[in-house]
């Protein structure tokens, strides 16, 4: 079996003395979409932050393309080819839409994604390119945040709660673009509270509960009962 693109090996993560992740392991193969689900505070965002280098695991390690990146700084992890779409979008308010996208390309990794390709994927952004990012609606901000992450030409895209606070029709619209992104050879980790959406978009599912993996498996094989048991811990 080929070695996975991302191999998270039994990581422990802490906020001060509070342990948020307990021996969490996860694998993502090239071109695969993996969903991470779980209740509030289960450790989903912590897992993504640790992979992206914003936090460092105290135990275990993160291997990307066979290389250990657990202790790499966030700006260095981007250069390896991992991009995070942060929870709450977090566009730079002082920058225009286009400047937000350009700064995503700061690391100058070569690859298929250019400003033009992002505008083809999300045409509304092209119309608003010179406006302040704060003038965008929530859904448009989410598109800009995804575009900004893609501009670094990652091999792995981490999406943290892209449906949060958005109308269902907008969420469907954004999810409809994900296959185009995967078609460029990217792997995805989707962290979601919207379980139905996550199951539809992904091949593999991991369910976190209080910092531990409570369930994992192929999306189509997991039953409703097993998911709700893992989700709620009942």
């Amino acid at each position: 079996m080929a070695s996975p693109l991302l191999d998270v090996r039994a990581i422990d993560a802490f906020y001060g003395d509070f342990q948020a992740l307990f021996g969490v392991s996860l694998r993502v193969n090239a071109g695969e979409v993996v969903a991470v689900i779980g209740a509030n505070g289960a450790g989903k965002s912590t897992l993504l932050k640790t992979i992206a280098g914003l936090m460092h695991p105290r135990g275990g390690d993160v291997l990307f393309g066979g290389e250990a990146i657990g202790n790499a700084a966030a700006f260095d992890v981007v250069r390896h080819g991992i991009a995070l779409v942060p929870e709450g979008r977090r566009l730079f308010p002082s920058l225009t839409v286009e400047e937000n996208l350009l700064i995503g390309g700061q690391s100058r990794r070569p690859g298929p994604w250019t400003l033009q390709r992002i505008y083809d994927l999300f045409p509304i952004l092209a119309e608003r390119r010179h406006l302040p990012s704060t003038s965008l609606s929530g859904g448009q901000q989410q598109m800009a945040a995804i575009g900004r992450a893609l501009m670094s030409n990652p091999r792995l895209l981490l999406c943290d709660e892209i449906s949060l606070g958005l109308a269902p029709i907008i969420v469907r619209e954004i999810y409809a673009r994900l296959p185009k992104i995967v078609a460029e050879g990217l792997s995805l980790i989707i962290v979601e509270q919207d379980i139905a959406q996550a199951l539809k978009a992904s091949a593999q599912v991991y369910c976190l509960q209080e910092g531990r993996i409570a369930l994992q498996g192929a999306a189509r094989e997991l039953t409703r009962e097993s998911i709700s048991a893992a989700y709620f811990g009942v």
Binding site: A52, G53, L54, A73, A74, F75, V78, R79, A83, L84, P86, R90, F92, P93, S94, L95, E99, L102, I103, G104, Q106, S107, R148, A149, S152
Partner: peptide, 24 residues
Amino acid sequence: TALGRAFRATSDDQAVAQLMGLDT
């Protein structure tokens, strides 16, 4: 300029600036 953009982005949000590959 790109440097100015990096200054403004870092001023807005240091953590996300790092996620863009900027060594703050």
